[in-house]
Amino acid sequence: MRPNKYLLILLATILVYALFEYYRPKPINWQPTYENDDKIPFGTKVLYDLLPEAMQQPSVRTVRLPVYNHLTESQLPARSNYVFICRDFNVDGNDLRQLFAYVRKGNNVLVSAYYVPDSLGRVLGFKAEVKAPILSDTTLVNNFVNPNLRKSGGYNFFHDDGRNFLRLTKPQNITVLGRNARGEPVFIRVPYGKGQFLIHNLPLAFTNYYVLSSKTSDYAFKAISYLPALPTYWDEYQKQGRFDEEQQSILRYVRTQPALNWAYYLVVVGLIMYAIFAGKRTQRVIPVVEPPQNTSLDFVKTVGRLYFQQGDHDNMARKRMQYFLTELRERYGLNTTVLDREFTETLARKSGVSMEETAELVRMIRNAQASISLSEYDLLTLNRAIEKFNQTT
Rank of each mutant, 00 (worst) to 15 (best):
V63H: 12
L297H: 05
E357T: 11
D218Q: 12
S249Q: 02
T302H: 13
K222H: 14
I134E: 12
R97D: 15
V176D: 13
A263W: 07
P66K: 01
G93S: 13
A348S: 08
S296I: 10
P117T: 06
F221E: 04
S371A: 15
S375K: 07
R305P: 04
N69A: 15
L306H: 10
E184Q: 13
Y102E: 03
I250K: 00
G125Q: 09
D137C: 01
Q31V: 12
R349H: 10
P58F: 01
S217P: 03
F206Y: 08
I365R: 11
N315K: 15
E53N: 10
R79Y: 01
G153V: 06
R167A: 14
Q309T: 11
F389A: 08
L251R: 07
T295G: 13
N29M: 07
I250F: 11
S225M: 01
A263S: 11
L347F: 02
Y34W: 01
T358F: 13
R163S: 12
Y34E: 08
V111W: 07
V300N: 08
Y22N: 05
R64M: 12
I286M: 08
I276V: 15
C86Y: 01
R363P: 00
T169M: 05
T33P: 05
R2F: 01
T282R: 13
A101I: 00
A18H: 03
R163D: 11
Y102G: 09
E330H: 13
V268P: 11
F187C: 06
A370I: 02
H159M: 06
T33C: 02
R163K: 12
S80P: 11
N261T: 04
P191Q: 09
L140C: 01
S112N: 05
H313W: 15
P3F: 08
V353P: 00
Y307H: 14
N383Y: 08
N383V: 14
N367E: 13
Y23D: 02
A181C: 04
G304Q: 15
S354Q: 07
V46L: 12
F89C: 04
T216H: 02
T295W: 14
N94P: 00
Q293M: 09
E357Y: 09
S351Q: 09
A18T: 12
T393A: 12
Y233K: 02
T139P: 03
H200F: 14
G333I: 01
D235P: 15
T138V: 06
N164H: 07
Q391K: 12
P228A: 00
E330L: 14
Y23T: 08
P287L: 02
T346S: 06
